[in-house]
């Protein structure tokens, strides 16, 4: 089961650029939340701040409070511990090319020292079924490299890899932007089915995608969270003029 996320006064800098300004919002558990906005608006930086991935870039820093469940992730734990609880799927599929499909899915557990083969088998099958890839790859789990799959399959493999550690939250940074329409729709189906079990935060530049999968949607503009409310409301009666301009295609 997923947990909720509570963000209070989150500010982030990339070098001297102030990329996130006083972000405060509550993401409810076991639901999909979409973040939209023009490129460079800070939405990607925001999700990276949710599992402290921004710290992998030495020029980036963040202040404020992010609570995942009852944990303050900037104060109560190390980034490594946080990331074991929060899965992440990236913009471009990035399976480990030297590992088999099986090892890719099991990597989160194996690389963290988990050795029980029986449980691993079980987890790999379950995760691949969850990401709707099982039927396509079950015959060459250990024979083929993760990099031998098609782009859409690779991305579902990456989702399976993220699910295998049974995370409380799943962050997705434009997971379908590098994929063709058929693969995109498969990924969207997946998100739709997974959101009952996990808290999903998905960054997208595609507004229809947000409308199709998310209960709640936030609109980012120039580092600010302009509006955050239920998807139906934001796409039908946005309160802010800027949101309406963006949604109706007047800019961005």
């Amino acid at each position: 089961m997923g947990v909720g996320i509570e963000v209070v006064d989150l500010n982030a800098w990339y070098g001297v650029t102030h990329t996130l300004k006083d972000i405060t919002l509550n993401i409810p558990p076991n639901s999909a939340t979409a973040l939209i906005g023009p490129s460079g608006c800070g939405k990607s930086t925001f999700v990276r701040c949710l599992n402290r991935m921004h710290e992998t870039n030495p020029a980036a820093r963040a202040t404020g409070t992010v609570k995942v469940g009852d944990r303050d992730i900037y104060r109560d734990a190390s980034p490594v511990e946080i990331r074991r609880r929060i899965g992440m799927v990236f913009q471009r599929p990035n399976p480990f090319p030297t590992m088999s499909i099986y090892d890719n899915v099991a990597s989160g557990l194996k690389l963290n020292g988990f050795r029980n083969r029986k449980v691993l088998d079980e987890v790999v099958e379950r995760s691949l079924k969850q990401s709707a890839l099982w039927e396509e790859v079950k015959d060459d789990l250990k024979k083929k490299s993760g990099a031998s799959l098609s782009g859409g399959q690779q991305q579902r493999l990456c989702i399976a890899r993220a699910l295998a550690v049974d995370p409380e939250v799943l962050l997705m940074d434009e997971p379908a932007s590098a994929l063709d329409p058929v693969s995109t729709s498969k990924i969207e189906d997946l998100i739709f089915n997974l959101k009952n079990e996990y808290t999903i935060v998905i960054v997208t530049h595609n507004m229809q995608q947000a409308a199709r999968v998310a209960e709640n949607t936030g609109f980012f503009l120039m580092g600010q969270l302009v509006e955050f409310t239920s998807t139906n409301v934001i796409f039908t009666k946005p309160k802010d003029k800027r949101t309406e301009d963006y949604i109706t295609g007047r800019f961005g």
Partner: peptide, 24 residues
């Protein structure tokens, strides 16, 4: 939409294992 696939529940030990691992 395709119906959600029926999958087994995640083995309970996994979260407990990961959460007790050291931060390295």
């Amino acid at each position: 939409r395709a119906p959600a696939p029926m999958v087994a529940k995640a083995p309970a030990g996994i979260r407990r294992f990961l959460h007790t691992q050291t931060s390295g």
